[in-house]
């Protein structure tokens, strides 16, 4: 890489976007549908396998007095169960398997993305948008199925003066329909930006390395930055999974109790 950059005459030694490139590993086309098994697909499967292994093997025999691994799995479970109960209410617990899968998928995908060479599934807008869109459609359908036309009350906040009502309702409708966009872009942009930043600082290190002894001293600062950013990225990875899930719970709360 570095040699290539040198040949290109002072270009950036590391392409920070290369890590996001989707490359087909096994091209597949089923009935006109592009189902190629790509590196993205591979890491999605890895994520699912990791979650399954964690929740199934981690539970061990399911003993009355849990061991270390079982405690971790149980804490993971109770953490999400409490999140759903506190933010969406007890009646939202029937959606718990979905919300658990959502959190586990995003959390593990983000964490796996922190490994060198790994591909970050959630750094693609299409992935986060499909997840957020599923939540949006699911929540809207749930609202209409449970409450019928009364679900439209979600657009009419109580206690607003009649004169302001048209404006407020318009704003509510716009904000409702922009939910899937903000929901998906938040996760996507965080993951993307963090990984780009790591690569950019890595590039600085490589650039300094080619500058001899002076450069060796100069690369300490970006190297230190990478270490700090890596810690920050782990935080962001966990936090964004949490934010995505808790927003899902809040949207679900609106669908279950539209009267505010």
């Amino acid at each position: 890489m570095a040699t290539g950059a040198e040949q290109s005459g002072g270009g950036f030694p590391v392409d920070p976007l290369h890590q996001f490139v989707v490359q087909p590993l096994i091209p597949l086309n089923i009935g006109g549908l592009d189902a190629s098994f790509t590196n993205a697909s591979f890491w999605m499967v890895v994520t699912v396998v990791a979650v399954a292994a964690f929740t199934m093997l981690g539970m061990g025999k399911g003993s009355m007095v849990p061991g270390r691994m079982q405690s971790v799995v149980e804490s993971f479970y109770t953490f999400i169960a409490n999140m759903v109960r506190d933010n969406a209410g007890q009646d939202a617990m029937r959606f718990f398997p979905f919300i658990f899968s959502l959190f586990a998928f995003i959390f593990f995908a983000n964490m796996i993305g922190m490994f060198p060479y790994a591909f970050t599934v959630t750094s693609h807008i299409v992935v986060t948008f499909v997840l957020a869109g599923t939540v949006f459609v699911g929540v809207t359908l749930t609202g209409f199925i449970l409450h019928g036309a009364k679900f439209l009350k979600v657009f009419v906040p109580s206690g607003v003066p009649v004169a302001l009502l048209p404006l407020v309702v318009a704003i509510e409708i716009i904000s409702y329909f922009s939910r899937p966009i903000s929901h998906s872009v938040r996760l996507f942009a965080n993951m993307l930006a963090g990984h780009i930043m790591l690569k950019v600082f890595a590039g600085f290190v490589l650039t300094f390395m080619t500058m001899g002894v002076v450069g060796w001293a100069g690369m300490i600062l970006p190297l230190f930055m990478i270490v700090c950013l890596t810690a920050l990225e782990f935080l962001v990875a966990a936090l964004q999974a949490y934010v995505f899930t808790i927003l899902t719970c809040m949207y679900l709360h609106d669908a279950l109790h539209p009267g505010h």
Binding site: D34, A35, F37, T38, V48, V51, V127
Partner: peptide
């Protein structure tokens, strides 16, 4: 790349959902 990503996301997420 969207098409293949969506296909595999749906497949893997459904698998995960059913397993869970």
């Amino acid at each position: 790349t969207f098409e293949s990503q969506i296909v595999w996301l749906v497949l893997s997420f459904l698998a995960l959902y059913f397993l869970m």
